[in-house]
């Protein structure tokens, strides 16, 4: 492929991505969720792929970010006792400025809280390795969901409504499409930068042999905590916005959605090829598009198919798409024997 063709293809793709919600106005939410999926897979891969810490509990930050954002939004403009009633449709609409202010503050608060949480939880949990880390985080994710569904302040099991999106010349779908597009791109850029320098090498070293990394004097605990915090920040920013996009936070199905988002993020990263920058992006795109196109034909058997898909991918295709390509053509990934010039 020559350079001009590649550039023009890239331009066309970029244009398509930018214009997608205008071309397909009926699918704005699904398109926004595509970028959410990319983000989920990317943030999972920081720990799971690059660092070898297979977390099943990253959904915690997604949910905590979501609730924090919603609670801050609620607290800023509404009386808590009347809130459910207000949001029920009879009450006030926020102006665009107020809405954005609330959302901005909420997202900031959620992100900050999640970093603090990642550091605190990390101090205990990141010391665990292997099986124990995986299962501990699995427990963490479910515990969070169970706590949220028993906590009255958060609406307990009946959930929490987020403020209505104000009426302006653009709709909720458009707004959040571009929000998630920006956020996913930002995540991608930040991660690619992080992986390209010392941080990336250090977490790869932890993945390959943590004892060795320690015996070489690496500050492994710090690196692990930072890695978890980075995924926590982006997950919180995604969660907070997703709550507003959906408009209603259910503790188990939307916020701490272990059986859906929690599992999908792992699956998408593996499908694309964990431990690579592009793998999660590719995996998420393929998974989401397939799911949107074909899932509905399965008539309630979707989740059965999901379980089957996990088993098949994990057992037969654990390297993922990029991992498979790498195995076939290692030279393309820079593995080569090279003499002195």
């Amino acid at each position: 492929m020559n350079k001009a063709l590649r550039t023009s293809l890239g331009m066309a793709l970029a244009l398509l991505i930018l214009a997608a919600p205008l071309i397909l106005p009926n699918y704005q939410t699904q398109l926004a969720v595509l970028w959410l999926m990319v983000l989920l897979a990317l943030t999972w891969d920081i720990m799971g792929g690059q660092m070898g810490y297979n977390s099943f509990g990253n959904i915690v930050y997604f949910g905590v970010g979501m609730y924090t954002t919603a609670v801050i939004q609620r607290g800023l403009f509404f009386d808590i006792d009347e809130y459910a009633h207000v949001a029920g449709g009879t009450g006030s609409q926020l102006s665009l400025l107020d809405y954005l202010l609330g959302l901005g503050l909420g997202l900031t608060g959620g992100a900050l809280l999640c970093v603090v949480l990642a550091v605190i939880l990390g101090a205990g949990i990141l010391g665990l390795r292997g099986h124990y880390f995986a299962i501990c985080t699995l427990g963490l994710g479910i515990a969070a969901g169970e706590i949220a569904s028993g906590w009255d302040y958060l609406g307990a099991g009946s959930g929490l409504v987020t403020p209505l999106f104000p009426e302006t010349f653009f709709g909720r779908g458009i707004f959040f499409y571009y929000y998630f597009l920006t956020l996913a791109s930002l995540t991608f850029v930040v991660l690619r930068y992080l992986y390209s320098e010392r941080f990336g090498l250090a977490i790869n070293a932890i993945r390959d042999d943590e004892d060795k990394a320690e015996s070489m004097g690496l500050y492994t605990t710090r690196y692990k905590t930072i890695a978890w915090s980075v995924s926590a920040v982006f997950l919180a920013l995604a969660g907070g916005a997703y709550g507003n996009l959906i408009g209603f936070i259910d503790p188990l199905d939307v916020a701490f959605a272990g059986p859906t988002f929690g599992v999908w993020m792992v699956l998408m990263a593996i499908l694309g090829g964990k431990g690579t920058v592009w793998g999660p992006v590719i995996g998420a795109t393929i998974f989401h598009i397939t799911q949107e196109l074909f899932w509905t034909y399965l008539l309630g058997w979707q989740r059965v198919a999901l379980g089957l898909l996990i088993v098949v991918i994990v057992v037969f295709f654990p390297l993922g798409i990029l991992g498979w390509i790498r195995e076939r053509w290692p030279e393309r990934f820079g593995e080569r024997v090279e003499g002195k010039q």
Binding site: N54, F56, H131, A134, I135, P259, V263, V266, I270, W301, R303, V304, L306, G307, L308, L309, I310, V311, V314, V315
Partner: peptide, 14 residues
């Protein structure tokens, strides 16, 4: 872990 997790989801849904 992931494979048995997948089987568990499969059985659940079945």
């Amino acid at each position: 872990i992931l494979a048995t997790f997948g089987i568990s989801i499969l059985l659940q849904q079945l």
